[in-house]
Design a protein around this nucleic acid. Structure first.
Lengths: 203, 203
DNA sequence: TTGTTTTACTGAACACCGTTCATTATTTTT
DNA sequence: AAAAATAATGAACGGTGTTCAGTAAAACAA
């Protein structure tokens, strides 16, 4: 009993240890330039050991994927306190972009990186992602009740809005903001989002 | 003379041969899952030979990058015939998304893939990219002359608009449209863009 | 306490990768 | 025909993800 539970705790600790190291190196060097040996070295174990705790490199990726969504949802919790749905929507976009800006590599992992997608483990995997998207859709429905977005379909509208903020985040994460030589990416996103909100207000 | 020029032609033919094979396999398996040996096998040469024509894998990537922009600009040429600037803007967005949809992997290569960026060869490399962005900015300026987008800065506005369409394209390319289980990505993009245009019209 | 089983870990091995380079075969120049 | 230049090869280097026989330590049974 005591020993079995200790064993289980040790197992979980080891998984955490690996995950922490993996996150550190993934976010430092990116998915493909991080090797299992790199991760193993970081925690002073042999590479083979990692395979006792994770099926493969991909499973580590997906564990971090989930952690990213947990963090994002956490950052969104306070939005419940914004009473007006439309204000909540505007704040959501700002929080989303803030998250992307402050957690560039997590964001990349969650929304841009090519998840190798091996066994359609999507169902479990995207639970958190759906929670986030539902958050947006719910707000949009509430906005509609208040008279916003008349005649617009919530599904399509959520996609358009998600795309709007994701586009900025993605261009930022993958260094395409450089196309605007001398403008600070932060300014681009700030002003870009301002205009985007202008558009939403009038829709 | 005759022989020197023939040699040069042979060199260019060989580069084309490699590039064609590389494009085929890149776009089939993605950048990281394509090996130099794969490309070599496709054209029935040894892997070493490729290095006589391209410095490294990265240089092949960048050559394709450029080709992508050439193709995109070509697809945009007919837009010159659309007389109204705002109509031209709407058509530009549509053409952009069409390009992304029909050339998923080229689009990925051009706007999403992490270009390893080795020697700041950006300057030469992004010439085509800037041409494309300038195309958008010019149209926006013309729209302003006609009274659209009053008080809006062309730089920031272009970023917001680019982000809007890029967002949809990027979510599509990296399979995040799956978050909408049963809706066809094509529908998402079509309706999403429709709403986006609605917003632009009112801005 | 001893012997046995289970668990945790290692490190060598496999088949791949990008890249380099000495060697060979071919073509051009002298 | 001999020499020089060019083109192509394939072995080699140090890396990759992953597997697995072997070993050492811990848990259990007697």
């Amino acid at each position: 009993m005591t020993i079995a539970s200790r064993k289980q705790k040790e197992r979980e600790d080891m998984r955490s240890l690996i995950l922490d190291a993996a996150r550190k190196i993934f976010l430092e060097k990116g998915y493909y330039d991080t090797s299992m040996r790199n991760i193993a070295e970081e925690i002073q174990y042999s590479a083979g050991t990692i395979y006792l705790y994770f099926k493969d490199k991909d499973e580590i990726f997906h564990a971090l994927h989930e952690e990213g969504f947990r963090r994002m949802l956490e950052k969104m919790q306070p939005l419940g306190h914004v009473s007006s749905p439309f204000e909540r929507l505007k704040a959501l976009g700002r929080v989303y972009l803030e998250f992307a800006f402050e957690n560039k590599d997590f964001y990349d992992l969650m929304f841009i990186m090519q998840a190798p997608i091996k066994h359609e483990a999507d169902h479990e995997d995207w639970k958190m992602g759906h929670r986030t998207l539902d958050f947006l859709k719910t707000i949009l429905s509430e906005c509609k009740i208040e008279g916003y977005f008349k005649g617009k379909n919530v599904e399509y509208l959520s996609f358009a809005i998600w795309s709007g903020v994701h586009g900025m985040a993605a261009l930022y994460c993958r260094d395409r903001c450089k196309a605007y030589h001398d403008i600070d990416p932060k300014d681009l996103i700030e002003h870009g989002y301002k205009y985007f909100v202008n558009m939403l207000e009038k829709l």
